[in-house]
């Protein structure tokens, strides 16, 4: 019998008010062990107040090869930015 421990992605909230951020990954037999290991590996110096562990295989990632069609269309939509609109200087705070 030879089965490797699956890979888990670790997300840590560094303090309340902030989002969970990806910190890294580790191998563990189950979620409980992933949580214990994440605590030991990623929060030894008060780096966090909350941890999420997600088995890596459950993450669907975009493919960099598709970056053109995924992200480039946004580039020519400058009208989505406030600076696109010309306003007289007299208008303040808008």
């Amino acid at each position: 019998m030879k089965k490797n421990w699956p890979l888990w992605e670790i997300f840590v909230r560094s303090k309340n008010g902030l989002e969970h951020r990806h910190f890294g990954s580790l191998h563990a037999a189950d979620a409980e062990m992933a949580m214990e290991n994440a605590r030991d590996v990623y929060t030894r110096r008060n780096e966090g107040v909350s941890i999420w562990v997600v088995e890596s295989k459950n993450i669907t990632a975009s493919n960099p090869a598709d970056n053109g069609e995924m992200f480039e269309p946004a580039q020519d939509k400058v009208y989505r930015h406030p600076t696109f609109y010309d306003l007289p200087d007299e208008v303040k705070h808008m």
Partner: peptide, 13 residues
């Protein structure tokens, strides 16, 4: 130990 942990996890699942 690694194998036992894996077996335990699978059984729990």
């Amino acid at each position: 130990v690694r194998d036992a942990a894996m077996a335990h996890a699978e059984k729990n699942e």
